[in-house]
Structures are given as C-alpha cells and as structure tokens.
Design a protein around this nucleic acid. Structure first.
Lengths: 140, 140
DNA sequence: ATATTTTGTTTACAGATGTAAACTTTAAAT
DNA sequence: ATTTAAAGTTTACATCTGTAAACAAAATAT
C-alpha cells in the first residue's frame, strides 16, 4: 500500500493559509503566521519546504517570488486526518466521540441540518449496539 | 500551561487493550497485539514503558508479573485527542468534517439519537454561518 | 554596477515515534 | 540449588517534528 504522508500540526497551519488564499507567496504565509504564532520566518520556510517534499504543496517557479499552491484538497486532507485519528478509537466509543465533537464545535445551521439528515439516513440501518473489537485480531 | 502529553498511534493500541480489560499484565497485552499486528514483544514492552513515563499507565508493582492499570480515562483521552485534531481545522469546515465522520463510522441507534438531540439543542443558538478564521491573528 | 534586501535552500539539533535487540532480574522447573 | 524461562529495563537507531540559523541566489535600491 502507498505510504500515507501525514501533515504535522505546524504544517496544518501553513496549509490552512494557502487553502484559504487559494495560493500564496512565502511572504504572505510568513506575515500571517508571524501574527498568529511566535515562529521565526526560518521556521515557516522549513515548513513550506517540507510540505513540498510531502507533495502537499507545489511552487510555481516561473517567476520570483514563487507562488505556492496546494496539491491536496482541503476537504480530502481533513477527511484523511480525521479518519486516521478515528481509526485509533474503540469503535464502540466513536458515537460518543462524535457527540462530544458536536457539543464542542461551532456549527452552522445548515451544517447542523445536514448532519441530522445524515444521521436520520444512518438510523435506517444502524445496529442497536456496536461491539468493541479492541481485543480482536482483525485489523482496523 | 501544562505540557499536554499525547498518545502516539502505537501507544493507542496498547491503551485500548488495557482500558478494555480494565487492567492487564504485559503478557496479556503482548499476546493480543501479536495477533493484531506484526510487532515484536520488545516493541510492545517499549510502548508500555513509554506510557508509564507519560503517566497514562501505572504498574502495580506489589507482585510479579506487574499488573498495568490506566491512569487516564478512555473517554477523556478520546476527548483530548479528537479536540486536539479539530483545533487544526478551519472552523468553517468542522461541520462537514463531523458529517463525514458520521457517514464513515458505525454508530448505534442510541448514539444516533443522542447526537441528534445534541444537534437539536445546538440548533437553538447556532449561527447561520461560521466564519473562517484561518488568516486571523487570534490563537486557534 | 554595487550594496542591500528578499526569497529560497542547506544544515542543525533536540525530542518524539516506530521498531527492536540486548541485558537484568525474578520466578518457575528440574 | 541450578537451569531455564518470563518479565522488566536499557540501549539503539532511523525517521519525523519543532524550531531555527547560516548560506546562496535573485531582485531591488542606490
């Protein structure tokens, strides 16, 4: 199976800026992150370089300063990260974890409706109980 | 602020077993993980030791073999991990991320109801839109 | 044209993580 | 009492991550 490159916490901060702007120069990223964090510009440069090595970013090198663009879709990255974390959890407890998340996150009216809808659909075939498989040989 | 010790992916596997059993000897953990993974027993021993150093586990050392017990509640650990990850995300996208999670997780009927209830409560005060703050100086 | 500033690349280094062998101490078997 | 087996501790080593300085190349200012 292909090695899944993961994004570190610090790298997430860089990606969020570039996703939000669509593309950005290193200066733009540095200016924003210097306001958000106490990282030195050198640190942010390192993160940009690592993100390129991991193929999360590419530099448009036709002219200086380079313009950095995302190579991965934000929603896909979120999907992968979140599912990767949930793979660690006892499947019996994922429901509670989601509830906890709902209670601790700001969510818009339309997202709330959308989640409720997904839950209603899910209820049609959901099991009464989800069994813990933490001791089983089975991968997951 | 107190340094937050985090649990690595491999360490999660160990903790899940001990949480599920309530307590366990290293042999029990090793037997189960050798069926689940291709880790050598030495690897699992290392994980147990690291978990003790991080204060996630303690050994009952009154008699051999030691009995290892969790020092952190499973739900609390899940809460911390999940929220830690969600802190990385653009707040505008958390709703979608939760929906995605709902669709990709097995959830029991009762958990579904419970989440719907939480969402209904949330809807009472939820904003129409959640603004992206990825470029703001503000922490988080 | 040269000095200076900006931007990009290399090198650095400590701590965390995955992965495990080697060693030590204790308990069990002969 | 000894040998052996099991359990626990130390050491090891590569890669990843946080954090950044030093260096090189290009662009800008003088």
């Amino acid at each position: 199976m292909t090695e899944i490159e993961t994004m570190s916490k610090a790298e997430w901060q860089v990606m969020r800026i570039i996703w939000t702007l669509g593309q950005a120069t290193s200066k733009e990223v540095i200016d924003i992150l210097e306001r958000k964090t106490d990282w030195k510009s050198a640190t942010i440069k390192t993160l940009i370089i690592r993100l390129q090595k991991k193929n999360f970013l590419k530099a448009e090198e036709t002219k200086r300063p380079y313009v950095y663009k995302p190579l991965i879709d934000e929603d896909l990255a979120i999907h992968q990260s979140v599912n990767n974390l949930f793979d660690n959890l006892c499947c019996m407890r994922k429901g509670q974890a989601i509830k906890d998340l709902v209670q601790n996150s700001e969510i818009s009216q339309s997202d709330i409706s959308s989640i409720v809808e997904a839950l209603n659909a899910k209820a049609k075939t959901a099991p009464e109980e989800v069994e813990c498989n933490c001791l089983e040989a089975n991968l997951s």
